[in-house]
Design a protein around this nucleic acid. Structure first.
Length: 284
DNA sequence: CGAGGTACCTGACAGC
DNA sequence: TGCTGTCAGGTACCTC
């Protein structure tokens, strides 16, 4: 799913539902999703009885802090998303919204955690790219130590100090520079700041960088308010769609008219990812 | 160390 | 209709 707003939405909703619950069992039809421990049997043995003490976000990673010094790490990659509800006889029921594409939902559920309150947390993942790991707090912490700061938590000075080189689009998406921003929100922030994605960071004026910093924060906060962007089958843990899709100005709008000036939105490749921009509002 | 390509999977959609 | 190619909220790993 998932960039910062979608991951944060997931974490916030799960916290309301699953805090202090314990895992009593786990099921999968795709054991390759679990990277640590390597054997699913070990994973199952280890997680049984562990209590959820906290749920945190670091970049796009979800960390369940468990009892006995253990952490459960989930990275949803492109199409993964965690759901909270009921899993009965191989079918999923969301807590609140029962009408959204139930068959599709069931088809992509590949991992189910059974909690001690007769509810389940499920991982739905069309492309099965997600990563799930259970290890000690220290081991998980170490794995995430290369991640850059969270864009919502840093000052402009810190932003300026960390976003220093390369093409601006790639710098924004580089998790070691700042963590949590991906293709959608980097495209959208650059459009709103009027900056061409291929511009070099070192060529940006301080004013442009400041503007970008502010637009990035604004857009991430706005997306958080509306629970993110739903592309493909993304749903919040409660089964709702994010509403940011309606606010997209360039992302996946190739060939359509810019809302500001009417020019046609373009799509180019930068480092094997696509970048969308308005050639008139975002001059190179 | 960094940049660029590929691999990991499955599905939707455009064009012939 | 059916086939082929391209694209998709991401990152790990390899080569140069």
């Amino acid at each position: 799913m998932p960039e910062l707003p979608e991951v944060q939405t997931t974490v916030s909703q799960l916290k309301k539902k699953a805090l202090k619950r314990a895992f009593i069992d786990v099921w999968t039809d795709a054991p390759k999703l679990i990277k640590k421990p390597k054997s699913f049997d070990d994973f199952k043995k280890k997680i049984k009885g562990k209590k959820i003490k906290d749920i945190q976000r670091r970049g796009k990673n979800i960390i369940f802090k468990l009892s006995e010094g253990q952490s459960l790490l989930v990275h949803q990659k492109l199409t993964g998303h965690l759901l909270y509800g009921r899993w009965k006889e191989g079918r999923w029921q969301s807590e609140e919204e029962k009408h959204i594409g139930e068959d599709k939902m069931n088809q992509y559920i590949h991992l189910v955690f059974f909690l001690d309150n007769n509810r389940e947390i499920a991982l739905s993942d069309l492309r099965k790219f997600a990563k799930v790991e259970l290890a000690s707090d220290e081991e998980i912490k170490k794995e995430l130590e290369d991640l850059g700061p969270d864009p919502l938590k840093i000052s402009f000075q810190e932003f300026k100090d960390t976003v220093r080189k390369g093409k601006i689009k790639q710098a924004l998406m580089n998790q070691k520079i700042i963590s949590g921003v991906g293709n959608i929100y980097s495209d959208e922030a650059l459009f709103r700041a009027g900056i061409h994605p291929l511009r070099k960071v070192k060529d940006l004026k301080k004013k442009e960088l400041k503007n970008l910093y502010q637009e990035l924060k604004r857009i991430l906060n706005k997306a958080l308010e509306v629970q993110g962007t739903s592309i493909s089958d993304y749903r919040t843990p409660e089964g709702k769609k994010g509403e940011f899709e309606k606010l997209l100005k360039v992302y996946r709008r190739k060939g359509k008219k810019c809302f500001n000036c009417g020019a046609k939105i373009e799509r180019i490749k930068i480092g094997n990812r696509s970048a969308h921009f308005c050639p008139h509002c975002q001059k190179k």
